[in-house]
Simulated scan of single mutants.
Amino acid sequence: MTAIDFTTTVPSPARAAGAAAQRATRAVAGRSTRLRLTVRGRRVLAVLAALPAVIALSVAVLGGGVALASRDAGAPAGSFTTVTVAPGESLWTIAEEVAPDRDPRDVVDELVRLNALDTVLVQAGQRLAIPAAYGR
């Protein structure tokens, strides 16, 4: 009988494939690979991207009421007069009456801002603040 030499080994197909994969990995290692994000990674990235906008909006909302909550005295007592709206009157007619020499559009705008009105519609019996400079 012939003796079998067990010192030399024949590579198995799996071992050969693994070696080929290692060589391919080393060859690709020099090139950049495409970044792949999971769903969780995309969510984290979206939250991190939106975080500065959320912080800025929070500061604006929370800091916006500072002027309203101040303890300043406001306007002097004699700087305004009050007018009660008569039936059939509008802000336009009141503006023409209190400031006949000025453009009624500007006066109406000033009255709306001064009295914090949502619209230019007024109702009979409503009290409006008029700057004393206009007088009535």
Rank of each mutant, 00 (worst) to 15 (best):
V54A: 13
V61Y: 08
Q123F: 13
V39R: 13
R23L: 15
V59T: 08
E97W: 12
A116K: 07
A19S: 12
L48Q: 03
E96K: 14
E89Y: 01
A56F: 05
V61A: 13
A56V: 09
R71W: 11
T81M: 11
S58D: 09
G41D: 10
T38F: 00
G125R: 02
V54K: 03
S79F: 06
P76N: 04
A116P: 00
V112C: 01
F80V: 11
L68E: 13
S58G: 15
A116V: 14
G30D: 10
V112G: 02
A17R: 14
V85T: 01
A27I: 05
P100R: 07
A46W: 02
V66W: 12
R127L: 09
S12N: 11
V61P: 05
I55V: 15
T93R: 03
D118N: 12
L51C: 09
A77H: 07
A19M: 12
A20P: 02
L117W: 04
V47H: 07
V107C: 04
D106W: 08
R23H: 08
T93H: 02
Q22S: 11
L111H: 03
V47F: 09
A21S: 08
R102Q: 14
L128H: 03
T81N: 14
A49Y: 03
V47K: 06
A99C: 06
V98G: 02
R36Y: 10
E110Q: 15
E110S: 13
T84G: 01
S90K: 01
A17T: 10
D109F: 07
L121M: 14
